[in-house]
């Protein structure tokens, strides 16, 4: 699989862009310790470009690393799937990045595989279920790019769209309360969900502030829950539904159910189709219009 056409094109283009000085660095994926791991890789030398791969496990979003050097001058070549490109759009809209600093090599994404299933079942790629987030992806083709490394793909009809949200909405308030309490009880507060999130691009985060203590460092159900819910509300309308928060959570919190619920509400209230689909469409909670529905009145 790593020797596929896209991989070969990635390597060739990375070499050309680096050798020609068009970019100083490219960010893509390489193979990890296990066959079902394709972690991010940072390449500066053309001769290192052969480490790059494109396969079923390139789940990591390379765009978030742009935040580590958000005020820098370097031009970065970024390999982007559909969801990654939406992250780039969001970073540009949030003024964390100027478009000229990235050269986007788009990869129309056929949908990736679930690495957890690979690990636990040992089945080969073709037999694995799709990664959870890919099951209802509507935008597999990069929405912003400088070049495409493959033919665009037709979006598959989403499997059971918003199934998790609908199932939760069907429960009563008490049951939903118990459901979230039980989940957040085990949150370790490692902040992986926040750190991996392209919507969480603030230079300073309220959850890190010692005083005033918005979020106590005590790890208990109340503080954990507060963290999870406030974060979900903060990224409402800016979440690109890439599912990275849920993938990285070490204790398997169903975080996307929260994000999808908010996305669903935003769609119903504002007709919002999703964050980061184009450079013009701002998140509905980022601006105000006289004819906004006003449920606070």
């Amino acid at each position: 699989m790593p020797e596929n056409e896209v991989t070969l094109r990635m390597r060739r283009r990375a070499k050309e862009l680096l050798a020609g000085g068009e970019v100083q660095q490219v960010i893509g994926w390489e193979k990890g310790t296990f066959w079902y791991q394709s972690p991010p890789v940072f390449i500066r030398q053309p001769e290192e470009a052969d480490r790059l791969v494109w396969d079923d496990f390139c789940l990591a979003n390379p765009a978030i690393y742009l935040l580590d050097d958000r005020y820098g001058q370097e031009r970065v070549g970024l390999f982007v799937k559909g969801c990654d490109a939406r992250a780039v759009v969001r970073l540009i809209q949030d003024r964390q990045l100027v478009r000229e600093r990235v050269y986007l090599l788009g990869i129309p994404c056929p949908g990736l595989k679930d690495p957890e299933a690979a690990r636990t079942t040992g089945r080969e790629s073709a037999q694995l279920p799709p990664a959870r987030r890919c099951q209802h992806c509507l935008y597999p083709n990069p929405v912003l790019y400088d070049e495409l490394l493959a033919q665009t793909v037709a979006p598959r009809p989403p499997l059971a769209p918003r199934a998790a949200v609908k199932a939760l909405e069907a429960k009563g308030v008490e049951e939903r309360f118990r459901y979230w309490r039980e989940h957040f009880r085990r949150c370790l507060r490692c902040f992986a969900c926040r750190n991996v999130c392209p919507a969480c691009n603030c230079t300073a985060c309220l959850f890190d502030l010692a005083r005033p203590t918005w979020l106590a460092k005590e790890v208990d159900p109340a503080n954990n829950w507060f963290y999870g819910l406030v974060r979900a509300l903060h990224v409402a309308g800016r979440c690109i539904e890439c599912g990275e928060c849920e993938r990285v959570c070490p204790v398997g919190l169903p975080l996307m159910a929260l994000n999808e619920k908010l996305a669903k509400d935003l769609e119903e209230l504002f007709g919002f189709k999703g964050a980061g689909l184009d450079l013009e469409g701002l998140p509905p909670l980022s601006f105000w219009q006289p004819d906004d529905p006003d449920h606070f009145a």
């Binding site: 010692a210 990285v248 070490p250």
Partner: peptide, 24 residues
Amino acid sequence: QKCLGCGICTYLCPTCYCFDVQSA
């Protein structure tokens, strides 16, 4: 470079013992 700066490794690690002291 690829580090997310999260606490997964430290919180899962059976030997990572560092702690903070705070007031409630």
